[in-house]
Write a protein that binds this DNA or RNA. Structure first.
Lengths: 141, 141
DNA sequence: CTCCCACCCGTAGCGACTACAGGGTCAAGG
DNA sequence: CCTTGACCCTGTAGTCGCTACGGGTGGGAG
């Protein structure tokens, strides 16, 4: 399987698991380098494009922004390999992920509590979910 | 404090906690009804606008999309009060929230495991985070 | 009368794609 | 040789939920 020598954009998309249109988008925004072209203007990709694109896809799967991935690619350059900075970036991202989890768990609690109330008394005059949305703020006082 | 009789857009924004520009945006996309205007063309809001806007804000805080909030507002109409449908919508949303939490937890595990490895051996030849991003997929075979 | 603030409108930008429209290219089959 | 159909090209617009800006008006205070 030593394929991927002179891939078309479609081949690259398939091999990397990245949508074809997205590959062109990454080129447009400078995240992927512009490849050589055939006489007819078709893009021709090499192995290093594939490796870079897979790196980007993995980064996205891990929730990094394209700007963060840009920075990671920079830090991953051969000769550079700035592991300390990479770790810093990853740790910052991890903090964001944890913050989002905390936010969503608060949401989950509120929603599930409210929906459960709804279950309990189907014949109640008011709808607990709507109450939550309409409540006059602090209500009393 | 029986203010909010004939609010300006700025007053409404402050009272509701929604950004002023966002209020105009909600009107533009039809989420908020177009209010009356003064002779000079300034918007004049009534209490029902404020109640609706706070409903929207609460919905957003709970993570509902504007389309879902549109649906909830519809289901909350006096005379309708379709609690069953409201519950269904909320339950669907709760499922999405839980799915997102599950996704993020997977991320969190991967990231924190990898970063921890980085801690352990600061003098290791390779960077665990970069390894994660660059790994040749299944590696062997 | 002038100052300034709050309001008006329309448009463009964000992030990360995705989806066209309207063409050109290329290899295989009839 | 010609057609078919899969692929490729470019450029632009749409998505979601705002946010920001530029340039203009209105109205009250000093």
């Amino acid at each position: 399987m030593r394929a991927s020598r002179g891939l078309t954009i479609g081949g690259l998309a398939t091999a990397s698991g990245v949508n074809l249109e997205t590959v062109r988008y990454y080129e447009r925004i400078g995240l992927m380098p512009a490849p050589d072209r055939t006489a007819a203007g078709h893009r021709v990709y090499e192995d290093h494009h594939l490796r870079r694109l897979v790196f980007v896809r993995r980064g996205r799967q891990l929730g990094f922004s394209l700007d963060e991935i840009r920075a990671l690619l920079d830090l991953a350059q051969p000769g550079r390999r700035a592991c300390g900075d990479v770790k810093k970036l990853a740790a910052m991202h991890l903090d964001e992920v944890r913050a989002k989890i905390a936010d969503l768990r608060r949401l989950e609690t509120i929603l599930s509590d409210t929906i459960r109330k709804c279950d309990g008394q189907a014949d109640a005059p008011a709808c607990p979910v709507l109450d939550l949305l309409e409540a006059d703020a602090v209500a009393s006082s």
